[in-house]
Simulated assay, not measured.
Amino acid sequence: MSWRTAAQATLHCLTGCAIGEVLGMVIGTAAGLSAGATVALAVALAFFFGYALTMRGVLRAGLSFREALRVALAADTVSILVMEIVDNAVMVGVPGAMEAGLANWLFWAALAFALAVAFVLTVPVNRWLIARGRGHAVVHAHHHH
């Protein structure tokens, strides 16, 4: 099990998480939601988009919607959970970032930094999962279905 495979799996996860995270942070900040409500929205959207991207690939491989959902849940839940805990902890931990507003560089710099830290800390988790036939390894079993 290589670090490269783990990094690729994490990058796949990061794509869905980042779409949801950025969208949630933008909507929450623009709407003037509290930091807690903004984080909750960002996390919900990160899970939605993370699962959706995985499901898209396995649906193309011929799995039913129900089977694709099971694969996505098995493949991505731990990775997305770790990524969301880390990136939201960093985002909330950067002084003033949540209150900075969309036009402020601090908001965007903190969000980019949070996603980068989440990526780095999630790669070893994905490596551990894939080495045990879990996580993103579940998806690879269906690529040639």
Rank of each mutant, 00 (worst) to 15 (best):
M91H: 09
V78I: 14
D87H: 04
V22Q: 03
F48G: 12
C13V: 06
A75T: 02
F47H: 03
E21W: 01
L23E: 08
T10R: 01
R127D: 12
T10A: 02
F48D: 01
T54L: 13
A30E: 09
G101E: 09
V90T: 10
L115S: 02
V58T: 09
L59Q: 07
A30G: 13
G93T: 14
L111A: 13
C17A: 04
A109P: 12
I19T: 12
V138P: 00
A137F: 00
V82E: 05
C13R: 08
V39T: 08
L121W: 09
L129S: 02
I19C: 14
G135M: 07
H12D: 03
M91D: 08
R127M: 06
W128K: 13
A6G: 13
R132M: 03
T5S: 15
A103N: 08
A52D: 10
L115C: 06
L121N: 12
F47A: 12
L45E: 08
A44M: 13
I130G: 06
R70H: 15
F49C: 03
L45G: 04
L106N: 11
T5M: 12
A72N: 09
V94A: 09
T38M: 04
A30F: 10
M1Y: 06
S2V: 10
L69R: 15
L23N: 11
H144R: 11
P95E: 10
G62N: 10
L106I: 08
L81K: 02
I80H: 03
G93M: 10
M83T: 06
F119S: 10
P95N: 15
A35G: 11
A97Q: 02
G57I: 07
R70E: 15
G16I: 01
A7M: 06
F49P: 08
G36Q: 01
Y51I: 01
R134W: 01
F113Y: 05
V123Y: 05
V117M: 04
L129T: 11
L69Y: 14
G93F: 05
H136P: 06
I80Q: 04
V92G: 09
V123T: 03
C17N: 08
W105G: 11
H144P: 05
T10S: 06
N126K: 05
A46N: 00
V26S: 14
M98K: 14
F107T: 05
F48N: 00
A18W: 07
Q8C: 15
